[in-house]
Design a protein around this nucleic acid. Structure first.
Lengths: 213, 213
DNA sequence: GTGCATGGTGAAAACATTATCACCAGCCCG
DNA sequence: CGGGCTGGTGATAATGTTTTCACCATGCAC
């Protein structure tokens, strides 16, 4: 999908909002009113541009025939390949209909937890950690951190120039870092946990096209 | 909301499906075609009946102006008052945008877990247990059971006419039941767990009106 | 059996919406 | 400096859609 212009992004955002609030896509006159345009044709050209760039689909001759083509739900990230960004395509196992607004701050992706290093905080092997993407974390928060080529989930403690990454399982070691020497890359903070208790048959990843929410 | 007739329920279901699949509500001609009616007025009368019963809202003079008025998301059940049904209004703390299809079998409600009796299975105080409503459970499943006036979450083991409700914490006792004497009422089975790690500011319960799913 | 809710047909007027025409201006790129 | 993309105005035809007529049949409660 090509980059959208500022104007096109505004219009796409309005369509999203209209869909969420009214439960149906806007018409061209409604869009024209919202953007104070005198002609529906201005709107029509923006819609054609958005459709050409793959952001929406226009259903011919249907009133309110605007469909959003964004992917629904949050990406589930599995084992992170060495050196690759967390959200790189090869790490994404699928998309699942989890509402980002259910968590605070907003959820950005799901990370499948491997191992039992956070067992005593009730985070088990296979659980989905709900992650808010940020590079800043405060002491005491559960962080998704990158250590060299590895991505790990631990509780962060900051003491001046020293940092600790603390597991919640006596079988694992606390990692001590000197921030004047070592680099600590924060990928995000844990804002929630989701566990599927009947995981024998995991739900199919929704490739569903959205409209709202 | 009054009871819907079979026909009205069919039509409501179609509207729901159309919304989920097409991203916009159906028009009256579309409904007429779907139900093989020769006149859009047949549809119109059904819509007026649905609106009168509070199932939908009709937006005047708007193409596809049908809004679903169902409540979004799943109810979160807090402490269950003695003797009351789990989903009784006084037990419901709010509604949260959790997608029922994310779990298998389908999620019906969320139960706020009290205490640490399932700690070693990673279910902690305050966690939301995702529950599928059923009165039948198999041995080995995590069940929401009613014991007299209390509702409890334990793992179920069945051995002939004897049943055990087993906690996952050595500080708690296994409950032994003789099914020829005692009654074991199953309210549902646990199909998932959701935990909010930053629960200081819990998300506002959505009273949001849906369209989608 | 009379009244009322449900579930229809058929038609038509009024209005909402899409789609396309011609035309204009600014901007950036080669 | 010419051509293409963006972002507009204004108008109109064709179609989609809502709304409301009048009329009919069935089942059910009082």
């Amino acid at each position: 999908m090509h980059e959208l212009t500022a104007r096109q992004a505004e219009i796409l955002a309005f369509i999203r909002r209209h869909l969420a609030e009214e439960g149906r896509p806007p018409t061209r006159p409604e869009l024209a009113r919202a953007f104070d345009l005198g002609s529906t044709n201005g709107v029509q050209k923006h819609l054609l541009a958005l459709a050409a760039k793959g952001a929406i689909e226009l259903v011919p001759n249907a009133a309110r025939g605007i469909r959003l083509l964004e992917e629904a739900g949050l990406p589930l990230v599995g084992r992170v390949a060495a050196g690759s960004p967390v959200l790189a395509i090869e790490n994404v196992l699928g998309r699942y209909p989890v509402d980002p607004s259910l968590f605070n701050p907003r959820a950005d992706y799901l990370l499948q937890v491997r191992g039992l290093s956070m067992r005593d905080e009730g985070i088990l092997d296979g659980d989905w950690l709900v992650v808010h993407r940020t590079s800043e974390a405060r002491s005491g928060q559960l962080v998704v951190a990158r250590l060299g080529n590895d991505v790990t989930v631990k509780r962060l403690k900051l003491r001046g120039t020293r940092a600790e990454l603390i597991p919640a399982n006596p079988d694992f070691q606390t990692l001590h870092l000197d921030l004047t020497r070592d680099t600590l890359e924060i990928e995000g903070i844990g804002v929630g946990v989701i566990r599927n208790l009947t995981a024998a048959a995991p739900p199919a990843a929704h490739a569903r096209r959205v409209h709202r929410l």
